[in-house]
């Protein structure tokens, strides 16, 4: 019986100390972590909307969306974080869109788990750069094995077709969802 009490006390004690200590630490770390995260998002927004100066979170859509303003507080477009399936796992990208949603300003890949050195070429400019100023009306198309001809086409990556196609799909999916939401009067 004595042993049981000892067990109870020991484990509870360790738990209490650990819980307390971590709570103290987290009260220090939490704001910093939140700041880091915010900085990440901010960085991505400014990367995809180069003339942007300020942004705000759009609250009346059921997904994350930022409206972006230039120095004169004029709205210049949207920054849309969107997620979809890549070759290995989820890919999360930030898409910069013009005000009319028909032109992609740029994209930035926030998170991905593609094959290093192959699928990860989606991060590099030969591919990513194609999205700068890309026409998204009605949607983005991809071509394989030949340079893009139309202004809404991107060329896929040799050997990583799936990853490249995945990006195109994510972009299209995000834009479509956003269009639908805005058509219903959201985000104004």
């Amino acid at each position: 019986m004595k042993n049981i009490i000892r067990m109870l006390i020991t484990l509870s004690f360790v738990g209490v100390v650990s819980g307390g200590g971590l709570a103290l630490l987290s009260s220090w770390a939490d704001p910093l972590i939140a700041a880091n995260k915010k900085a990440d998002t901010e960085r991505a927004i400014f990367l995809v909307q180069t003339e942007a100066d300020d942004y705000e979170l759009v609250t009346d859509v059921p997904f994350e969306l930022y409206r972006v303003f230039d120095e004169t507080k004029n709205p210049v477009g949207y920054a849309l974080p969107w997620e979809g399936n890549g070759f290995q796992g989820a890919i999360r990208i930030m898409v910069g869109l013009s005000q009319d949603l028909n032109t992609i300003k740029s994209i930035e890949i926030i998170d991905q788990t593609e094959t290093p050195g192959l699928g990860t070429k989606i991060l590099e400019d030969p591919f990513r750069g194609q999205f700068e100023g890309l026409n998204a009306d009605p949607h983005v198309k991809w071509v394989k094995g030949a340079p893009a001809t139309a202004d809404n086409e991107v060329e896929t990556i040799t050997g990583a077709t799936i990853s490249a196609v995945a990006i195109v799909n994510i972009v299209n999916d995000g834009i479509e969802t956003l269009r639908a939401a805005i058509a219903e009067g959201a985000g104004q």
Binding site: S12, V16, S18, L24
Partner: peptide
């Protein structure tokens, strides 16, 4: 918050012990 953390861990420790 600290109290909650302490209670959570202490409680779990107690239960499993």
């Amino acid at each position: 918050n600290i109290l909650i953390a302490i209670a959570t861990m202490g409680g779990l420790g107690f239960i499993f012990a």
